[in-house]
Design a binder for these strands. Structure first.
Lengths: 180, 180
DNA sequence: CTTAGTACCATTGACGCCCATAAATTCCCA
DNA sequence: TGGGAATTTATGGGCGTCAATGGTACTAAG
């Protein structure tokens, strides 16, 4: 049987370090030191490195008490897509203020860390630990405790929704059998 | 050997450049060692290899106490389909949190194993053995004992449903014959 | 002079990577 | 068709590297 060996052969071919990940995936909890420094998870750094970026762009999330981050390229893409109206809509103006104005490009230090500005720490209620949460095109930095609560709530909601679907189906099939 | 061998013709089909096996099929029980490592069944690795993937992406299943896995390509396809909105909808946000955030890309070691993170082991109640269950586009990793129980229950439910259908049909046909 | 911010070095513990082994299956050839 | 050789799979263990983290020196600004 001549399977291509999945180990060293492929790695030697240049795929070392796993597949070139393009999205932010996974959750990683790291420490925040007295200077506000926190290590960006290596897998997230790898995503940014494929874009030749040596830092992350962060801004307060619009959806919850956390900080959102992505590559600088995404911010610039957002600028491109926003219509260049002399009189922007309320939404556009809000986005401009809330994201562009408060966004900051945070460069990595030698060890792959960034320093979180004081207002970011406050916004996300970050003290001694930060949870990096992959969300696909972006990631978020949460207070681990707050994250757990929010995710638990989302999980419960999903379960209820699923339960409702099952019930729906049961009623439907019952109706069908009764119609016979 | 507790390894269900699939027909060699399937393997040969994959080797000769023809259409390779594309779906996760079959059930395989492998050991989990002290480091949390488990061998991914060779047939499953073969599926991933056709996509040039050297790892699997796993996440806690929303449907039961098990871990679900697939190729990274499937996850990134989901990322692509979701709109890149600065203010995502609640549903989109929930998907991101429940899938992307809890997913981990687990690369193969030289022997075709992955290491299961502690939270995954806990979620699926995995200790010394893990059962890989093919589910087509994805597969699941179960505690073998729990899997057996769930499958037995599913079988019983299917039988009951069938019995109910037979009964309904009998009543229906009786009603029709009496009406004649 | 003090303080804040930044860049650079140093440690260590986990984990990625490799080797080795044994069982088992497939292949090949008599 | 049968038996032996060669792969291949699954699994155990050791070692080296890198990521995460703490600390220090340097620069600039108040």
């Amino acid at each position: 049987m001549h399977y291509v060996r999945l180990g060293s052969d492929i790695f030697l071919a240049g795929l070392r370090g796993g597949p070139a990940m393009k999205s932010f995936i996974g959750t990683f909890v790291n420490k925040i030191d007295a200077k506000g420094r926190i290590s960006v998870p290596a897998p997230f750094r790898a995503v940014l490195q494929t874009k030749s970026l040596s830092g992350v762009t962060c801004y307060p999330a619009l959806t919850g008490p956390c900080i959102e981050g992505c590559g600088l390229d995404r911010i610039e893409a957002m600028v491109e897509t926003l219509p260049d109206d002399p009189i922007p809509s309320v939404d556009e103006d809000a986005i401009a203020h809330l994201i562009f104005a408060s966004a900051r490009d945070l460069p990595f230090d030698g060890g792959g860390r960034i320093v979180l500005p004081a207002d970011f720490l406050k916004k996300a209620d970050l003290t001694d630990q930060g949870a990096f949460v992959g969300k696909g095109r972006t990631f978020q930095i949460w207070n681990p405790t707050a994250l757990e609560a929010v995710q638990a709530e989302m999980f419960n909601r999903a379960m209820e929704e699923r339960a409702a679907q099952v019930k729906e189906k049961a009623i439907g099939s019952k109706a069908r059998t009764e119609a016979v």
